[in-house]
Computed example of a mutant assay.
Amino acid sequence: MSGFDNNKKGSFLATIPVASIELDDDTLTKRCKFNFSYFYKQQASQSFDEWDHGQLIKLFEKIKDYSNDSLNHWRKQPIGKKSGHVLEVYGAFPSNSDFTLPKHVPHQAQWGRFRLESAVRLVGFVLPSDYNNKFHSCGERYDCNTFYVVFLDKEHAFYKMERK
Rank of each mutant, 00 (worst) to 15 (best):
D49L: 00
F60R: 03
P78W: 03
V86D: 07
L101G: 03
L101W: 04
Q46P: 02
L152Q: 02
Y159C: 12
T15Q: 13
Y131F: 14
S2P: 14
N35M: 06
L23V: 10
D98T: 04
L101F: 09
K41A: 05
F60C: 04
N7E: 14
D49F: 00
S45M: 00
Y148E: 08
E162H: 05
A109P: 10
K58Q: 13
K76H: 10
W51I: 02
C144L: 06
L122N: 07
F4K: 13
C138N: 12
N35V: 13
K58W: 13
A19E: 14
D49E: 08
G3S: 12
L56E: 09
K76Y: 04
L122W: 03
F151E: 07
L13K: 08
V149T: 10
Y38V: 07
Q108G: 07
D25P: 06
R141S: 13
E155Y: 06
K103S: 10
F34I: 15
R31V: 06
K160E: 12
G91M: 07
V89K: 04
N6Y: 11
L127I: 13
W51T: 01
K64R: 11
S37Q: 09
F12A: 08
H156L: 02
F114P: 04
Y90T: 10
Q46I: 00
W74N: 05
N96T: 14
C144D: 05
I79F: 02
R75Q: 13
V86L: 01
V120Y: 09
W51P: 00
L116M: 15
K33F: 14
H53S: 08
R75G: 09
S95M: 13
S47L: 01
N132D: 14
P128Y: 03
R115E: 05
D26Y: 02
S45W: 02
P78Q: 06
G112Q: 07
P102M: 08
